[in-house]
């Protein structure tokens, strides 16, 4: 059984065990190691990618569900939302150890795509699927507000 989809715009065909989660296709087959393994159970969000524009936890997403889809990873995150997030994350030096941060950014992108100016309470909903052991949450929150301001053009 061959499953066809795209990753960051590039066509991909995957054979073999259809229950294999997307995460391992990205990290091992395609060498896209910006998507991280943290728990294997959709508990931490380090593996978050976008499938057809929606945030998904790639560690529990079997490849068999991907036929015909478009997958975006941190390496392919582009567009104004992605740019604003990368800039905000960099300006505020959000990462500490950094392991969870690409997943955080992918979730933040899904949040901002839906809500350009999220409140703190909305950030609390959109981002609580992503855990950070270094607890960089103070800056994650700030960076999302900052990215939102950048998108609005009201940035300093």
């Amino acid at each position: 059984m061959t499953i066809h989809f795209t990753v960051n715009g590039r066509a991909v065909s995957v054979d073999g065990d259809p229950s294999r989660p997307l995460l391992w296709v990205l990290r091992e087959t395609l060498q896209l190691t910006g998507t991280k393994f943290g728990c294997g159970a959709a508990q931490c969000g380090a593996c978050t990618v976008h499938v057809d524009g929606r945030a998904r936890r790639s560690c529990v997403l079997p490849v068999l569900s991907l036929e015909g889809t478009a997958v975006t990873t941190i390496e392919g995150l582009a567009g104004e939302v992605g740019d604003a997030l990368v800039r905000a994350w960099t300006e505020l030096d959000v990462p500490q150890c950094g392991w969870c941060q690409t997943g955080q950014i992918m979730s933040a992108a899904a949040l901002l795509s839906e809500r350009r100016e999220p409140s703190d309470a909305e950030i609390d909903v959109g981002m609580s699927g992503n855990a950070c052991r270094c607890a960089t949450y103070v800056r994650i929150r700030k960076a999302i507000h900052r990215a939102s301001a950048l998108l609005k053009g009201g940035a300093r």
Partner: peptide, 15 residues
């Protein structure tokens, strides 16, 4: 909502 959809984590089958 806000990027945290049910299907962010839940699949169409058990794992």
């Amino acid at each position: 909502v806000f990027g945290m959809r049910c299907d962010t984590c839940h699949q169409d089958r058990n794992l």
